[in-house]
Amino acid sequence: MADAQHPRAGKAESYGGWQGILDDGERILWQGQPDRRVRFEPGDLSKAFPGLFFVCFSLFWMYQAAQASIAFSLFGLFFLFIGIRQLLKPAIMPAYIRSRSWYTLTDRRAIVATDIPVRGRRLVSYPIDSTTPIELVAGDPPSIRFGGSDDAAFTFIPEAEKVLALIRGIQRGELPEQEDWNP
């Protein structure tokens, strides 16, 4: 029930845009967005290698074809653009998706929302209970995985320790007092 000090506490309707998403009595404990920086992860090099091949081959093609005809060498631009896309996609695309992602932790679940052009809006929720596996993944900033899946995560969040403490509290049934939570 809402009180004068925290008028939104316990009322899903009072969270703008959350009508029909939050259950009755469910309250938001934390909201945030991931770090948006471009990152090069260890597996990105193997994903980018075909793009490097395409770029090198298309540049070679264009150079050799230009000796015969400039118009003929322009055919290689198509492959050059494909190669550049494949080369940059492993680092740029995850950063772009993070820039279009929002995280919410309620007293019952973790919610990951994304809004990506062409793909559209997506809202995925992961229930949090005493049996949900939780993992703090070291990084700058750290990430929190829940449910044992790489997809079920709050990635690269600056407040990871605070959010982890909230999740552990949910698992123990010890929710923060209303004056302690910060939606």
Score class of each variant (00 low, 15 high):
G17S: 11
Q33H: 06
G51A: 09
R8G: 02
G139C: 01
G139N: 01
K11G: 06
I84T: 02
R85Q: 01
M62E: 01
V118Y: 12
L45V: 13
A68W: 07
H6I: 10
G20I: 15
I144Y: 11
I167S: 00
N182M: 12
D115S: 07
D151Y: 04
P117H: 03
Y63N: 04
G120K: 07
E161Y: 14
S130D: 13
Q178D: 13
A165N: 11
G16H: 08
I134P: 00
I28R: 01
L29S: 06
I170R: 02
I134H: 03
V124S: 05
D44H: 13
S69Y: 04
L29E: 12
G120Y: 06
D35A: 10
L77E: 00
I84S: 01
S73F: 06
G16I: 13
R121T: 05
I111V: 15
F72I: 05
I157N: 09
G17H: 12
V38E: 10
R119P: 01
A2P: 15
P50Q: 03
Q178E: 13
G169R: 06
M62R: 00
S101K: 02
A12W: 07
A113T: 12
G148S: 12
A138S: 11
Q67A: 14
Y96T: 02
T155F: 11
E26M: 05
E159K: 09
A71K: 11
F53R: 06
Q86L: 12
E161Q: 07
A48D: 02
W30M: 06
I70L: 15
F79Y: 14
E26V: 07
T106M: 05
T104H: 08
E135M: 02
E41Q: 05
R98P: 04
R108N: 01
W18Q: 12
A165E: 14
S143F: 13
N182L: 15
Q171S: 15
W30N: 01
D107L: 06
S58D: 04
S58C: 11
G147Q: 07
Q86I: 02
S143T: 09
I157R: 13
F57P: 02
L59W: 04
A138M: 11
C56R: 05
R122N: 07
S149L: 11
L29T: 10
L22T: 03
K11Y: 13
L166R: 04
I97A: 03
F154D: 08
P158M: 10
F60Q: 02
T104A: 15
L88D: 01
P141M: 11
S46Q: 08
Y63V: 08
L22V: 01
T132S: 15
S101A: 08
G169E: 06
A160Y: 15
I116C: 10
T106S: 09
D115Q: 12
L45I: 08
K89H: 04
G76Y: 02
R108V: 00
I128P: 14
I82F: 14
D115T: 08
K11N: 14
R85P: 03
R122K: 06
S130K: 09
F57R: 00
Y96G: 00
R39G: 03
F154W: 12
L52M: 13
E135K: 04
P183D: 13
V112Q: 00
